[in-house]
Every structure is written in structure tokens, then in C-alpha cells.
Simulated scan of single mutants.
Amino acid sequence: MAVTRRQKEVLDFISGFVQRNGYSPSFEEIARGLGLKSLATVHKHITNLQNKGLLERAHNRSRSIDVLPPRSKSTLPDRLPLAGRIAAGFPVEAPETAESISLGDIIGSRDVFVLQVRGDSMRDEHIVDGDYVLVERTQTAHQGEIVVALVNGAETTLKRYYLEGHTVRLQPSNAEMEPIYVPAEQVAIQGRALGILRRYA
């Protein structure tokens, strides 16, 4: 969805502020940084960027403006032919079929975006460097779900989520890596993993 020049300036200012400071700017800091005289104008821009799916605000915490990953634009064909089932053990007969499958069959009506994986922290879940993860946009997660978590308003990571009292444990699926422990108020859930796409050629 298109953004105006001023909305892009607001978005860029917030992103840069978070990268420098590790937390979101206040409305006053945005107004001061962009030379805006009215907080109502800042609020209007933030609301419009929220409606376009580029920002998210949590109303139960201060400095709660989170920049969201851009919604993916799929260039895949609408449907792909489902040519049957294949055994990963002994060979089986593979009769031709007229069925087809699309990403819509997997995604349904959910709001989904795609992220490309960097690193091997989830390799024991068979999610490896270069894979594409289908992520359902959500702000909540259940224990043990694989989530996209924004930590300290600055860094996102793909891990299993466990809430332990006032602390969140972000658990890698790699025996060589240690879990990440973060105060719950410093973790914002941006989505949960639905599946992966992988290219071999």
C-alpha cells in the first residue's frame, strides 16, 4: 500500500530511532525530530501507518510503536498441480491426479507475511538458512509456538516462545545454542510460524 512522503519520513525516523536507542520514540520525540508542531499530526500519521500495516502499537506499554515487516507481494501462480503423494521410504505407485494446491489452501483467510531465515538456530526444526518462513501476523502466542519476536524494540528473531513468570525464554532448536532470556515487557510478538518454503535450485 502506498505511503505519502511525510508518512515515509515518519516511518524512517521511527526505524532509525529504534536502531540507535533500542526502544521506540515518543510522539514528542517524533514531532521534535521531524519539525512538526502538533502532536495531533504525529498521531494522524501513526494511525495511517497502522492502518496500512506498517506500524503496530501496544496500548498496554509506553514507547510501544513497532515497525512491522512489509507485507509480502506473492508472485507465485494462483494454484500449482498436486501431482500425488510421494514416499520418503519405499517407492509407491504414483498415479496422475487432477488435484491442485495453492498457498491459499494453507493460509486460508489469515494475515500472512514471509521472512527469509538467516542462521541455523532453528535447524532441529528443519528450518535452515535460506528457507522462507510463512508467518501469521499476531501479537499473541501460546507456550512452545515458533514465533517472530521483536526484542528490546530493535531486533527480531525466530524462536520457540515460553513465558516463565515475568521472563520470556526464546528457545533455539539447535543443541549448540543457548536460550535467550528477556524480561516479558521487552518482547513483542509479531507473528507465529505456519510453515516453510525451500528452494533446491
Rank of each mutant, 00 (worst) to 15 (best):
Y162Q: 09
E9I: 07
Q143Y: 10
L194T: 01
V182S: 08
I86C: 04
I196M: 14
P25I: 08
A193M: 15
L68S: 03
A149K: 02
N21H: 15
D120N: 15
Q143K: 12
A94P: 00
S102G: 15
R6H: 09
K44N: 12
T97F: 07
L170Y: 02
L82T: 05
Y161T: 00
N51T: 11
Q143R: 12
E176G: 07
E28Y: 11
P95W: 01
S24R: 04
P81T: 01
T47W: 09
Q116S: 12
R199T: 11
Y161E: 00
Y200S: 12
M122Y: 02
T75C: 10
Q7G: 05
P25Q: 04
L54T: 05
A98G: 10
S74T: 13
L39A: 09
I127L: 13
H43R: 14
L163T: 06
I65W: 08
A40H: 09
E125S: 14
V112N: 08
T138C: 08
Y162H: 15
M177Q: 15
H126W: 12
L150Q: 03
V3C: 07
Q171Y: 07
G35A: 06
M122C: 06
V112L: 09
H43D: 14
E96A: 11
L103G: 04
P95R: 06
A193F: 10
Y162N: 07
T156P: 01
Y132S: 13
D66Y: 11
M177H: 10
E185K: 10
R123S: 13
L115Y: 01
Q139V: 15
A94L: 13
R32M: 11
D78C: 06
V92S: 02
Q171W: 09
I127N: 08
G104Y: 02
R5L: 12
H142W: 09
L150W: 05
L76A: 14
L55M: 03
Q7K: 06
V112C: 12
G84M: 02
Q19K: 15
D111F: 07
E56W: 13
T167H: 11
G195Y: 04
R32H: 12
V151Q: 03
I106D: 06
R192Q: 10
L170C: 02
G53E: 05
S64D: 06
G153W: 00
E145N: 05
E176Y: 11
